[in-house]
């Protein structure tokens, strides 16, 4: 008889679970690997849903409440699936001084969503980030993770239009 309950089975035969399992194995299924594993889930699936958190928590023997607490503490983790495209506006100080607030307003207007939301058609997710470290060329926007610097509102609008028009 094993001392502990068996580790839970993979939630599905989706190959990405094996990558997740790999991360946990690398860390010897230690509780400390929680954040690292969540990173793997997030990068593999784009977000963390309840079954995923549960699977990771049970595999690492972390209480469910703690796992959920960790997921919701760190802004990098998302509980909702992202849109097909992501527009992430940097709101670091340098970008703020260079007018990133206006970019946020523009994007919200254009997409009819608030920061943190995804358009109704699931096309574009709008987000902000506290600094991507390209302050020298502020203001900075990440389109699908690609960095675009010295951004101006019309340019931003154009890019968003390209996505929403498709």
């Amino acid at each position: 008889m094993p001392l502990y309950a068996e580790r839970p089975p993979l939630p599905s035969d989706d190959k990405r679970w094996r990558i997740v399992n790999g991360t946990m194995r690398k860390h010897g299924f230690s509780r400390n690997a929680l954040i690292e594993t969540l990173h793997t889930v997030q990068s593999s699936f784009g977000f963390l849903d309840e079954p995923a958190i549960k699977f990771v928590a049970q595999s690492l023997r972390v209480p469910l409440s703690q796992a959920y607490g960790v997921v919701t503490f760190y802004h990098f983790f998302s509980l909702k699936p992202p849109g097909k495209h992501t527009c992430t506006i940097c709101t670091g100080t340098a970008c703020y001084i260079k007018g990133s607030e206006k970019l946020v307003v523009e994007a919200e207007k254009q997409l009819h969503v608030r920061v943190g939301e995804t358009t109704a058609d699931g096309e574009v997710s709008l987000g902000t980030v506290r600094c991507v470290g390209d302050c020298g060329r502020a203001p900075v926007v990440l389109f699908d993770g690609e960095l675009s610097a010295q951004m101006k509102a019309p340019q931003l609008a154009q890019q968003l239009e390209r996505w929403t028009m498709q």
């Binding site: 001084i97 506290r130 600094c131 390209d134 302050c135």
Partner: peptide, 8 residues
């Protein structure tokens, strides 16, 4: 964990 937003 570079803290300051606006520094790199």
């Amino acid at each position: 964990d570079e803290g300051d937003p606006g520094a790199f």
